[in-house]
Design a binder for these strands. Structure first.
Lengths: 344, 344
DNA sequence: TTGAAAGCGCTACCAT
DNA sequence: ATGGTAGCGCTTTCAA
């Protein structure tokens, strides 16, 4: 009779139960599970016992005994953004093949929340931590340093890296987009972004815009509106306000494709042609930008790739850590690309 | 000198270290952490020692000793879908306040992968498991039953529930949308969905369409194209094929808003007016449907709410479990709503 | 209010 | 190739 048929609230089978049923010692069972040297015959006996009992090894006990867990911690500002969801997907794809699983934390764009999550999740002794962005509280840095856990920061190029990073310069990307618009002949170029300082990457894009404006000797036209994460509706409201304040604006850069899409739809509603009356560009190359009308000029990055690469770095660091080797200090720069489309 | 300043590869501080520094026993430290009866004076000493050393209690050891973890497992078909990402967000919001954290698994729409993940993640002895959908392998059911872990299935109303569920009838929702279109006067109504049997919810929506078609005494027009998850580009390609095959189609129901959006954009490209020449409806009430032109008629569900409710049920079940009480068997039906918009 | 001892389920290490 | 022993870091239980 197998365990599951026994009904009632029984305790799940332990390694000792498997050992007894197979007529071997616990150690032999442990070795079979670890794929170590065990005779074919014994292996078979053990596997049969495992099958019969429906035995699942306890991860906590294993972690406690080895001092090594199977967790990777992933911290994102928001799962609602498909960008970060894709990054998590890439991370998962990179690490799941190595028997690691994801402990997920949503910081809700708050650095205090990030610090709290780091504190909570480090208790599980993860083999690696992926953070989003390069802005962190001192406490966060201290906790991570003290835990001596491999860390990868993503979506940015940190001035003061904790350890490794995978990202791109949001400042440079926004500036490049401005220059692209300038080359297209646009001169009076505005910017739409969130009013929240919490979105550090958004702030950097705005900074890139401001730098490019200054370099071009132009006057900035910034409309800040709404909290992170910025959505389509923010874009509509923002473009309305921006065009009221500066009616002769020729082109608008948006902090994300979502707000760009919202802005375009609002323009259509107002009877303005895009790009005829006003050109609009986004950031992030979201799916919607490739399929809407007009298709949206944007900056393309590959969120999945960022996550995937971060996962690879963490797996490598974890391996190095285990062997007592020094960990690498890679600063991985992923490319961004200006996607010139119909909206500009 | 605090631990972090000591440099080198030191081992992190243990409870015993805290105890020694505070001049008390391990047990007292444990009690302070658990918020049990300890004198004010001692509490202060212990907290100071914890602070000085930067002590973080080890979760594995705690889990092993108590037999109870702080994990909730969340299994979704794909994080790339904002629907499921929102459900995970709701789940996280519901459980994180109770000191629980999320172990995330992406099944990639494969039931075998789901079973594998259940097996892997159950090793961490989660206090609850959230599944997506009601289609599972026998092995998955067996593993969950044997683990005696609280389970909530989401996004569907299971015929054969494992334990609890939070969802709605995808069949009924699709049929309701058909009837809405029928009431609007549309008669020759087609359906666009994925060709993959993996997307069980998509299959059920198609079934709802077919039932409604039969009830109306009409002929079905189904165009199946592409694998899950269905994206905007699938919608464009599918509507093209459907209109080639049945040029007199008056309205098209799509398996999701994303394909509906893709379909509308393709129609525009072909010079067809929506809804003038062909009406198009979606499913899921994605953000894009509220802001594009025309706004898209769709079935609205609340993915975040589904996750949130699932989390609440799991927290309650976990509490009941801990107290040795029987667990509830709720089948929570969340509402869906036909959102009549411009596209039909 | 506090402490000492005995495990939780597993693996490292040393024997055989 | 296999087994015994001694922990991993914490909490439970009992005693003081």
């Amino acid at each position: 009779m197998s365990y599951e048929d026994s009904g009632k609230t029984t305790t799940p089978p332990r390694m000792a139960d498997v050992a007894k049923l197979a007529g071997v010692s616990k150690m032999t069972v442990s070795r079979v599970l670890a794929g170590r040297d065990v005779s074919q015959r014994t292996q078979k006996l053990v596997h049969e016992a495992i099958e019969t009992l429906g035995y699942l090894p306890d991860a906590s006990a294993g972690t406690l005994a080895t001092g090594r867990s199977e967790f990777i911690v992933a911290l994102v500002p928001s799962l609602a953004s498909s960008n970060f969801a894709d990054t998590v997907r890439g991370l998962n794809d990179a690490v799941s093949g190595h028997g690691l699983c994801l402990l997920l934390g949503d910081t809700d764009y708050h650095l205090e929340q990030e610090a709290l999550l780091v504190r909570t999740l480090l208790r599980h002794r993860p083999v690696g931590v992926m953070l989003t962005g390069s802005a962190h509280l001192d406490e966060t840095r201290r906790l991570l340093r003290q835990a001596q856990v491999p860390v990868v920061e993503t979506w940015d190029i940190p001035d003061d890296p904790i350890e490794q990073s995978v990202g791109f310069s949001n400042v440079a990307a926004a500036a490049a987009l401005y220059e692209h618009l300038h080359q297209q002949g646009y001169r009076r170029i505005g910017y739409i972004g969130g009013a929240s300082v919490l979105d550090h990457r958004g702030q950097q894009r705005q900074q890139g815009y401001l730098q490019a404006v200054a370099a071009a000797g132009a006057q900035p036209r910034v409309m800040e509106y709404g909290e992170s994460p910025i959505t389509m509706s923010h874009g509509g409201e923002s473009v309305k306000r921006l065009l009221e304040k500066w009616p002769d604006t020729e082109a608008v850069m948006c902090v994300s494709d979502l707000s760009a899409f919202g802005a375009i739809m609002e323009c259509h509603r107002q009877g303005r042609r895009v790009p005829g009356d006003v050109a609009i560009a986004g950031f992030g190359d979201f799916e919607v930008s490739r399929y809407c009308t007009p298709t949206i000029t944007t900056v393309s990055v590959d969120p999945y790739r960022i996550g995937r690469r971060a996962g690879e770095l963490l797996v490598a660091s974890a391996a190095a850590q285990r062997l007592g080797l020094p960990r690498a200090q890679t600063c991985d720069v992923v490319e961004f690309q200006i996607m010139a489309r119909e909206s500009t």
